[in-house]
Nucleic acid binder design. Sequence first.
DNA 1: AGTAACTCGTACAGCACTGTTCGACAAGGG
DNA 2: CCCTTGTCGAACAGTGCTGTACGAGTTACT
Lengths: 201, 201
Amino acid sequence: MTGAKQAKGPARRADAQRSIAAILEAAVSALSRNPEASVSEIAKAAGVGRVTLYGHFPNRVDLVEAALASAIEKGHAALDSVDLTGDPRQALARLIDSSWLLVNRSRSLLLAAQGVLPPGRIRILHAGPVERVEGLVERGRDEGVFRSDLSTPWLVGVLHSVMHNAADEINAGRLDSEKAGAFITATVLAAFTPPGSRVPG
Amino acid sequence: MTGAKQAKGPARRADAQRSIAAILEAAVSALSRNPEASVSEIAKAAGVGRVTLYGHFPNRVDLVEAALASAIEKGHAALDSVDLTGDPRQALARLIDSSWLLVNRSRSLLLAAQGVLPPGRIRILHAGPVERVEGLVERGRDEGVFRSDLSTPWLVGVLHSVMHNAADEINAGRLDSEKAGAFITATVLAAFTPPGSRVPG
DNA sequence: AGTAACTCGTACAGCACTGTTCGACAAGGG
DNA sequence: CCCTTGTCGAACAGTGCTGTACGAGTTACT
């Protein structure tokens, strides 16, 4: 499911596939910059007429959902290529390094989705990615290197929050984009350290 | 400066003052629920005609700014009543306990402001509150109980992020509102602990 | 009591956006 | 090569918002 309606029929023309891809890409990009980007704006960015867009996506809501799904799918692929075995702390560091930029870029897009999509729909969409992270955190807790006095969802939420904070700081010019990964990792590893243990670093 | 235009003239009538207060309160409340609340919506919530509102605030932007200023002023007062002396860690815990709810409530309002106000304007408005928190963090760093390998603005940002995370978790029904303070404190204190030191708790 | 300040509803112009329709035109597939 | 599929621009109706105007009514200060 790439997002556009594809009920049946003898498959789509090559032409249309290109359009859909361009629209999806433009939608992700535009909505990432401005969660309230209009359909006209997106169509223009995709180099496509507004009418054409409506030919593939029945309404704005479906378009946003398709864009979100597309972004998440891409992120999912990137995530799968990260080695999550070994010391959970180092695995977490690797995960952060390779995904914080992606997560950041999707933030505004997620905001756009939250404005128009039913809450359940969103949870379903990025249930996959979240599960892998939760698995890693869970393992760290079992091995005693991550704290167990706070719930796993909370810890994962903290990870996200700190990433968002990095995005804000960069955006405000107070943080160098190069150092963001290290800052996030240092902060999160400390936050995850069990009470009574020493903070690594 | 309560927010409405008050250039000169022989002072305002008691009637008008009541209206302005009601509008401001309604604006804070409505914008906190929905950052894109319309002027009609706010006027109705204030029990006032839309025209009356425009009589006091020339346009929507000024209204949002006044609402934000009002909320920040109230928060500033609440913050001033917190004792920030003594062990920085305990002072931070006190600060969190007494302000996280307030900060949370203002979050959506801040979002509304970010959408329509010039970025500099916002920084000016809540420069005051931020300074006090930064002062506390700075002191903790000097005393060696908070880490110095990360910048003060970053640490303050993390504090905010974790508060926001708590708000999200509560909103999603995954966190009990009662426990939020403790969760935030535990997480932030760990995150602020210098590398090599033991996490308190 | 009288006057200026305030409030209200309705109504209007202007704008931006959504979603649809139309007719003409280009491009891909069998 | 022909026919389906897709694309385009222009145009339209519908909606919801902002900001302004008007006129009549009400409320507070003196």
